[in-house]
């Protein structure tokens, strides 16, 4: 009994440093300018300024950035799913020369982050005149070592007999991948897709390297520029912008949290 209350007490205490920042972000985003700097913190805005969100939204071409983020994230995740499915299909259901080596070549890519390769990749893309294009934002991420690994594990768990039965029914090759392997691996596919969406929606580093033009900039870059400009006074607008940049991922997380947490529990992959 005492242990139980103690556990709850510690967990609740831990929520204070964890959730207070979120609360402070939300409250600040609704404050009129004169309520931002007060001698004692004002825990609720006296006169909620809802138009802060409109002001922040129009302070930079955020609509454009939002569109770019959506397109880039969607294309990256779609490409990753297609390429990873094909590669995982080959690695899990075929016997061929070099299978082990190819598997390790793919997995080893996990220890080479873009934070190491960015200068070389920047040079390559500049060489082909691809800076400031969607292609530059997407191409390096078109394949996912991690997705390939996860899907391979899921596909390998599908029993051999099922494959034989499917073949007797005339379902083989890519039809087997599409009609049997992928539906049976739905939890893994979904978990990987969610994690990839969050990772690429939030990505700040790579878009910073290959874009310097509002036509292709993504939301994190737009918010980063906003930080650079507003950092002295307009915290309310900056917090409002931070909220609408984060909101899609927070909503996705809260509605899909079962899949996020389950996928973490199963695989420990990054969100």
């Amino acid at each position: 009994m005492i242990r139980r209350s103690a556990s709850y007490a510690v967990l609740v205490a831990g929520l204070v440093p964890l959730l207070l920042p979120f609360y402070w972000m939300a409250v600040t985003s609704l404050k009129p300018k004169r309520e931002i700097f007060t001698a004692t913190p004002q825990w609720l805005p006296a006169h909620p300024a809802w138009d802060n969100y409109l002001l922040a939204w129009t302070a930079e071409p955020f609509a454009r950035f939002f569109f770019n983020s959506a397109v880039v994230t969607a294309l990256i995740v779609a490409l990753q799913l297609v390429l990873a499915s094909l590669a995982a299909f080959a690695l899990s259901r075929f016997e061929f020369h070099g299978r082990r080596i190819i598997f390790w070549i793919i997995v080893a890519a996990l220890i080479v982050p873009v934070q190491v390769t960015f200068i070389a990749n920047f040079m390559t893309l500049a060489h082909f005149g691809l800076l400031n294009t969607y292609a530059a934002l997407i191409a390096p991420y078109a394949a996912s070592a991690f997705g390939t690994f996860l899907l391979r594990q899921a596909f390998a768990a599908v029993p051999r007999q099922l494959e034989d039965a499917a073949r007797l029914d005339g379902c083989s090759g890519l039809a087997f991948l599409w009609h049997v392997l992928l539906p049976l691996s739905r939890p893994t596919v979904l978990a990987f897709a969610l994690v990839a969406i969050v990772a690429h929606w939030n990505d700040y580093f790579w878009p910073l390297i290959v874009t310097n033009n509002n036509a292709v900039r993504t939301l994190p870059i737009g918010l980063g520029m906003f930080i650079g400009q507003e950092v002295t006074t307009d915290w309310n607008l900056l917090m409002a912008a931070s909220i609408f940049v984060s909101a899609p991922m927070l909503l996705l997380f809260f509605f899909m949290q079962r899949y996020f947490v389950q996928s973490m529990l199963r695989t420990g992959i990054r969100g």
Binding site: F253, F260, G271
Partner: peptide
């Protein structure tokens, strides 16, 4: 888990 899904920029 919530902070994990937040963008680093925010």
């Amino acid at each position: 888990y919530t902070p994990v899904v937040m963008p680093t920029v925010a």
